[in-house]
Every structure is written in C-alpha cells, then in structure tokens.
Design a protein around this nucleic acid. Sequence first.
DNA 1: ATCGCACGC
DNA 2: GCGTGCGAT
Length: 609
Amino acid sequence: AERSHERVDYRLCSSQDELRELVQEIKKKGLISFDTETTSQDPLRAKLVGLSLCWEEKKAIYVPVGHTGPGASTQLELKDLLDILSAVLEDKDIKKVGQNIKYDSEVLWNHGVRIRGIHFDTMIASYVINPALRQHNLEVLAQQYLNHKMITYREVTGRGKGSINFSKVAVEKAKDYSCEDADITLRLMRVLEARLKEEGNEALFYDLEMRLLPVLMDMELAGIKIDTEFFKRMSNELNAQLLALEEEIFKEAGTEFNINSPQQLGWVLFEKLKLPVQRKTLKTRRYSTDLRTLKKLVSCGSKVPQLVLKYRSLAKIRSTYLDALVKLVNPKTGRIHTSFNQTVTATGRLSSSNPNLQNIPIRTREGRAIRKGFVAEEGCVFLSADYSQIELRVFAHYSGDKSLIEAFERGEDIHRRTAAEIMGVNPEDVTPEMRRVAKAINFGIIYGMGPQKLSEELGIDLSTAKSYINRYFERYEGVKKYREKMIQMARDKGYVTTLFNRKRHLPEINHSKHVIRAEAERMAINTPIQGTAADLIKKAMIKIHETLNRERLGAEMLLQVHDELLFEVCKEEVEELKEIVKREMEGVYKLRVPLKVDVGIGKNWEEAH
DNA sequence: ATCGCACGC
DNA sequence: GCGTGCGAT
C-alpha cells in the first residue's frame, strides 16, 4: 500500500500541565496503548528516551525526555514524566495495550514504574492467530491487517554503520514515528480482538498467554546468579586441554589447519588422509564432518576423528557456554537475565535467548559441569521440578491407547515396557541396549519419524527399523489411529490443534511433492503433542506464580526448560514450595494418564536436577 | 547473510 | 519434531 495521507493528530508534549490534563482524559477512557523509545534493545540496560500514548485512534502524544539532538531543549524531565504518568501506568483499572509490552514494562520497571492492568499485546495476539508467521513486528501486522505502511525504525535511525542511537533522533521525527507506533497498536487491537473471537482463541490468548506474560517478566527480571570465577577457571582449564588436543591433531594429520573450519577439516580427513567419505552436506555438497560421520570414522585407523570429536565438544563448551555467559552478567544485578520469547515457535513452546538458558549441556560429564556454575544466593537453594515423560503421557492421552495408558497408570518404566512389547521378551529380560532402542522408537513416534530416520538414528538397517515400527503399531493400536487422525484433520481443516485449541496451519499437507507432504504430516503428528505439553506447563507456571504471590512466599521462578521449572528459594521455604509446585504441576489438567513431577533440591543447578 | 555444526527438550 | 548460538566463509 501507499503510505497513507490520512489525517492524524500526533502531538509533542513538553509541559507538565499538558501531561496532567492528558491524565484526566485517559482516566475517563480506561484504555490506552503506549510505546517506549529507548537507548537499547536490552530492556535491563535501556534508558528511556521518550514515551508515546494513544487513547483514541489517530490521536497520540509523544513525551520526549532523553533526546540529545535537534529539538531536545524543550523536553520534560524524566522524573516529572514518571511522576505524572504513574497515576495512569500503575492503575490496574486503566487497561494497557502494547506491541511486545513485556519489553516496555521491563524498561519502566527499571525506571521505578510498576505497570499494572496489562490487557492486550498485539504481538502475542498475532502469534496466537498464526504462530507460523516468521515475524510479528508492527510493520508486518500493520501491512497485513490494516493495509498501512508504517515509518520504520530503520528510516528513523538509519541502518548499519551509519545508524544512530534513538536518543540522537530529532524530536519532531521521533514524535511522528513513536505516535504512529502507539496509534497503530491501538487500531490493531480492534482488528485482532475480532480475529481472536472468530478463531475461537480468546481463552488461549487472554487466560493463558496474556496471564503468562507477567510471569515471564518476573522471571526475566529475577535473573540467575552464576559463579563467574568458576566459569573463568573452567575456561582456562579447557584452554589448556584444547591446545594440547590441537597439537596432537596436527601431528596425527601431518599438517596444521583450522579445526573449527568444517571445510578445512573435510579436506584433511577425506583428501589428505583418504578416509572413506560418508556423506555430503545438504546445501553446499561438501564433505560432512558432523558427529555421526566422525563416529563412523573412528575405527578407520586414524586417530584424528576421535581427537576432533573431543576437540569439538570442548570448544563448544568454552565458546558457547563459558566465555559467552560471563560476558552477559548484568553489572547492576550481578546476574544473568535471559529473554523468554513468547512468539517464536510454531508449536507454542517458549524459546530463550541472550543467552539461551534452555540448552545448557547435561548429557556429558564435562558439559554437565557447567550447571555447577549456576548457583543459588547465600541462604537459598535451587528447586528443580520436571515433568516425567510429559510428551509420551500427552501422547498416551491423545491416542487413548490402552496399553500405554495402563503402563503410565501402573507407574512402569515406559521404555522397558516398549522394549518388551516390540521385541517379544519379558520386561525383566530387557537389556540396556534393547531399552535404548525402545526409547529411540518412543521418541521417533512423537516426532512422526519414519523408518528411514529411525534407522539412521539408531544405526540399524532399514528393514529392521521397519519391522520395529510395524511391531509398535501392532502392539499399540491407538498409535496408528492417532497418526491417521491428525493427518486427516490437517487435510480437512488445514490445521491441527492442541488441547487448549492452539492452532498450527499446515498448508503443505496436500502438496504434490511427497517429501514436502511427508514433512507436513510429521508436523501434524508432532505439533499436538509438543504443543499440548507446552500449554500444560504454561498453565502450571501461571498457577504457581499466583500461589506464590497469594501465600506471600519469597520463592522465585527463574527458568523454564520445556518440561522443567527452576526456582530459587530460601532454605526455610523449601518444603512448602515443593508441595505447591508438585501439586500445581501434577494437577494442572486431568488427562487420561496421571502427570508425574520429579523434584530435586541443591545449591547449584547440577545438584538440583 | 548463510552454512555447518552442536547443545537442549 | 521444536529451538539458539558459535565460528567460518
């Protein structure tokens, strides 16, 4: 669309009296959208530059307070802005609308303002309506829902090297930009609330996602303490090991090269050392050097593959988890504050970034040691609570499979039972290897995996994988029905849903190309399971957060890792917290199988898990 | 900016 | 199946 020339009333506010008058008008309205302009993307480091408010469509006001460029001479003082507007911002009866309002609320929290009455986040509404959309930013939403072309952030600040901080943007320009943001947000709300109703997603939006938002905000603000010295020590130790490994690899390879470069490593392994080529990479058709490839090469005579595997795992730990985490300690709080993103995944899960605290290693000894560096405050401990096999339980619920349900009701070891069923032995006679295979199959079923993937995953031949899957379908008759039912639903309606009616559209379910169609089918199988598990833990988080506030407990929820919640709690409150968390998580929703939660307690994350 | 790789659930 | 981040190119 053309940039519209519609008449709008966007004004600058530079006097306290004007602002006070506005507060009176807003109080009569009972609903506003607002937007903050700041110095940083990181809400905990951001300083307020200005704030825009919109109380009716096409009418907005911008209050500059932190500009240093043109027009900065007539600004209000930050303190005056906050003093006057607190009456509105902290009033729970005045509904707040925003685009990614968690960000603005955290910025204001850091400036001493406690936002109350958070009502509608347009970004989250867009996500609930269509989680597959890659971006839910205002520009995209304005274009899609209002056919309106906005002034972009880049147009105001410039891009790349020449870009300027928002505090240097001319006040007049900032006004046009910021007022439009607040105005469009309010207009979008009207459109999106209607869409939510049409889609039958009001409960998911208001009762789940919008109520989760303040929980996530508290978690992000709380942060988590790390033992910086521990991380630095471990990094130095790894450095020494890596140097030694590097030397050994060069000696064995007979040449020096960059081990971190897959390209150079491929050349050394397959051209210099003439090791047998396993496979090529997907896009660039180079030699693959990933974990699976290197594992196969271990028995080929050269020591290099084994050494590179070791090198890779240690280098990963150092770069991603030790050095990076230390850099992200907030100087003011001394803690690490992740962002929990509520509008990223296609299935309804959260994601975590800056840093990602949902992929801290656990499987190997060296990796797991990193968790010892996440520590509770003096006098406190961590309490970790994780759902046992939540996705398999959700799957048992959905499929209604008698055998699976029975296994969970009896509290059996599900992978052992699966092994016994598909390999035709007594449960007592299941070997660890048989259990490992069964576990992979159980996961494979959840992912909608076919025999090809399963054979690769387990390193067995295709026919064996096929026979396992067939046996599985014979033994668990609900499983096959479930798969067919979800694929059929996707074909009929164009989408699949979770227990709480979260939708995922799968337009490619009828695609003429088999590979693409098959991928959509796997999504149809996996999404209701993964998404329902996500819905359940989100609901539990809301309930726990409420209970902790109601009971005036000091315990704090710090992290969510898909099926696990991590809390920090003073020693006196541990037992009470444990009861609450277990009760709320296990009782969050009545499925056809019981939900089970395991709780661990310790001074650090490794101990608690 | 994109790719390959590796970490989590 | 679903993510994020690092280092190389």
